[in-house]
Nucleic acid binder design. Structure first.
Lengths: 115, 115
DNA sequence: CAGGATCCTGTAGGATACTG
DNA sequence: CAGTATCCTACAGGATCCTG
């Protein structure tokens, strides 16, 4: 039986694509990553930088992302507490994806305005 | 009142990002686009190329994507009918996004194997 | 400020069977 | 082959209020 390299590559690629979709799926993970990578550190700051997000979703996603080593949560026990989030190296590996998506979105808005 | 260019750009970018997520959200749109752009034309062919997808989801997404001018559906009235899907120019504007995501996925699997 | 607790809903998505 | 038709449900996500 012959092995079809073409198909095997296509299979690997679609699997990779599906993996990525699985990891960053949903409405909020990429916007949050983007916000934190842009230098936003505080909870409310991140919240305000992402239109439409609720405290509940942000809270849940941040927890999950901390568990998955995408971000680091630093607490300074002042009063009131100071909490700061920062991105990990791993988190930053999503940059090319985010940039590609931002560029698509910008070009798309441009088109809408023209048309 | 001063205008903060930094913030305005960040706002535009996150909006662009959210636009893109809105358009290609869900588990299946990108895999389908990828499959069709890879030359798959027939329904079952596309179906087989995407692990886990059901006929129902593929059918629904194809319809929606046709409406949104992402793909073209061509029918040849032989018996049985021959249906072929092909991508539009617009569809292909997602290539950079898909490529970035495939590359992330491949690198990620690589890491998992190493670690 | 930084979240947690509750309650609620839509819909994305799955399973299965069927048709021309 | 190329889909439709049903039925079903888990969970993403929203709204609102509350706390240290």
């Amino acid at each position: 039986m012959k092995i079809d390299l073409q198909n095997r590559d296509a299979a690997r690629e679609i699997q990779a694509l599906q993996d990525t979709i699985y990891v960053i799926g949903g409405k909020w993970k990429l916007p949050i990553i983007n916000s934190i990578c842009n230098g936003n550190k505080r909870f409310r700051e991140i919240e305000r930088s992402i239109p439409g997000i609720t405290t509940r979703m942000l809270s849940r996603e941040l927890k999950e992302m901390e568990m998955n080593k995408l971000i680091i949560r630093k607490v300074t026990p002042t009063s009131p507490v100071l909490v700061e989030y920062e991105s990990t190296e791993y988190c930053r590996t999503f940059s090319p994806v985010i940039i590609a998506m931002i560029e698509w979105g910008l070009a798309h808005r441009e088109k809408i305005r023209e048309g």
